[in-house]
């Protein structure tokens, strides 16, 4: 068991880096939670976990596609990042359409007086009794950055877990049988498990809602990143041992 851990120490470091990236990425995603669903807070109207999972798992799938054709790590990470960025962008643009044309409110932030990117005034357009609504430009850009980081993190974890399995003597290539591929299945499930743990920890840190990197809450990220660092080390040890055991059966 200890041999397996020592042999895979590099992959474990990658898994921990991936977990930390996911944790950091959540702070960029403009999550509005239930208030945003009623257009009473800036951001996308659903919870952190759903958003992070949606974007991150799309990143995982797109990284998996790339792994079919190459073993080049930067390409795989780029594929994961682009997949997650597309997913989060689509979510945000459709959400904006709904807020603008459906609800009929102006995308505006209540946390800053002017949008740091467009320099447009914000406070004039915030409806009374709300904490902003819709997705102003800065939140959109922040969300895309978050998707990028989350996608890289998810792809890094998945790639590392597959490499741990390859070290243990398993094949990662596609199989044509109905039972599927053991290594791909188990690596994907561990990646999803680690992803959820690292998506929930920062969502507790930000208290469920955040507007993006211009939000004062964003400065709290070191706490969540520290927590995720410790939690991911545990998950990485457990995951590497479980996948190494696959080689023996």
């Amino acid at each position: 068991m200890i041999d397996a851990l020592m042999a895979n120490i590099l992959w474990m470091v990658f898994i921990v880096v991936g977990g930390v990236l996911i944790s950091w990425s959540v702070h960029f995603v403009p999550v509005g939670g239930a208030p945003a669903a009623m257009a009473q807070a800036t951001g996308i109207g659903t919870g952190t976990v759903q958003l992070a999972a949606g974007a991150g798992l799309t990143g995982l799938v797109s990284a998996g596609f790339m792994m079919n054709v190459t073993k080049d790590l930067p390409l795989i990470l780029a594929s994961g990042a682009v997949g997650a960025m597309i997913m989060i962008s689509v979510t945000m643009i459709v959400g904006t359409w709904v807020y603008v044309y459906g609800v009929g409110c102006v995308p505006s932030s209540a946390k800053v007086k002017v949008d740091p990117i467009t320099k447009y005034r914000q406070d004039l357009y915030v409806s009374q009794g709300t904490e902003g609504h819709g997705l102003p430009t800065v939140s959109f850009v922040s969300g895309v950055i978050g998707g990028c980081l989350g996608g890289i993190g998810g792809a890094l974890i998945y790639y590392s877990l597959i490499e741990v399995g390859v070290t243990a003597g398993l094949a990662a290539s596609a199989s044509s049988s109905v039972t599927g591929n053991e290594l791909v299945g188990i690596a994907a499930m561990f990646a999803i498990g680690i992803f959820f743990v690292n998506a929930v920890i920062p969502s507790y840190n930000i208290g469920g809602t955040i507007e993006g990197f211009h939000d004062p809450k964003w400065k709290k990220w070191p706490k969540a990143v520290m927590s995720s660092f410790v939690a991911t080390i545990l998950c990485a040890i457990v995951a590497v041992i479980a996948i190494s055991q696959l080689g023996g059966i």
Partner: peptide
């Protein structure tokens, strides 16, 4: 929790 109840169910299964 500050964030919806589903988050804790997801971390449980994670």
């Amino acid at each position: 929790l500050g964030t919806g109840v589903p988050s804790i169910g997801m971390i449980a299964l994670g």
